[in-house]
Design a protein around this nucleic acid. Structure first.
Lengths: 153, 153
DNA sequence: TCAAAAATATAGCGTGAGCTATACTCGGGG
DNA sequence: CCCCGAGTATAGCTCACGCTATATTTTTGA
């Protein structure tokens, strides 16, 4: 039953269950939207770079097989982020472009922040890819402010 | 085929595909080990706090159902991180304790770092839960150094 | 022009992590 | 003593996201 703990014991950290569960729930949710943001951001980049985003290029960038990309694109279509015509390219909808811009902004801030902190550019790029999806608005603002104060750029 | 880009064009950011894919691969790998670390760390906390880690408590903390926990514990057993006897509690093996200590250390550093940066404690705790799994050794060291210089504590 | 190459679509499979429902154990109180 | 409730185990489902293999379509170049 686990006593509420004797008054005198040190009693380890353990926050209360309610807050604890909230943290994990947030992390799980972030994981769910990670892929969507990655795809949309990448598609936007590819279109900006080469004028088009082909499945093979997306697959090559993400390091997955082409059918995996095809399946995800179908989902993104259903969710209204991209538009695609069979055997033709894929384009972002207005919502897709908005999400891409937002994701890229966050990505940029995190990466710059890490650089400003003294992390090597290569590591900053790689870590940012994972971290960007887990920073809340408050933390992101702290990152932004710090990078501006220091690293400048 | 996407030309290598005309010499005069701005040509957007896009790092080369090889590095790009490496970032995503790293993020996917982190995602895979996240859960294991979360479980082991939590089990260690529960044992430290109440002397035992029951499935119901783990489930309540993580915000998932008990059978989900049972299934994961079986996996952790097979991977050699925990030891369990049917209808009895679950304990960490030596490897499990080592992993838990390491995970907690990283968690602690990230959380302190965020606090030192000016993020509110509540947000720091929640964001740390997601970020901790995506910081490389280099970035973690930068976090540690910064927190030590500033926030102290 | 038309056949081969490249890209996309589709089918079908595996694994991980979640769920509900239900069966089983164990320990404590009637 | 035995039954009941709390906790655990198990069965069986869904969904997301990988994969390979193969069919279809588009593009390209001889």
């Amino acid at each position: 039953m686990q006593e509420p703990s004797e008054p005198g014991l040190p009693e380890t950290v353990l926050v209360d269950p309610e807050r604890h569960v909230e943290s994990f729930r947030q992390a799980r949710e972030a994981r769910r939207s990670e892929l969507v943001e990655d795809y949309v951001e990448l598609i936007d980049d590819l279109i900006g770079d080469g004028g088009e985003a082909r499945q093979v290029d997306i697959a090559a960038r993400l390091g997955v097989a082409q059918p995996t990309v095809a399946k995800m694109l179908k989902r993104l279509c259903e969710e209204g982020f991209v538009q695609q015509r069979p055997y033709r390219g894929v384009f972002l909808t207005e919502a897709g472009r908005r999400l891409a811009a937002q994701a890229r902004e966050r990505h940029r801030i995190v990466e710059r922040f890490l650089c400003a902190l003294g992390v090597s550019p290569e590591t900053a790029r790689r870590d940012a890819e994972g971290i960007e999806h887990h920073v809340s608005a408050e933390t992101l603002e702290a990152f932004r402010a710090f990078a501006e104060r220091r690293g400048g750029a």
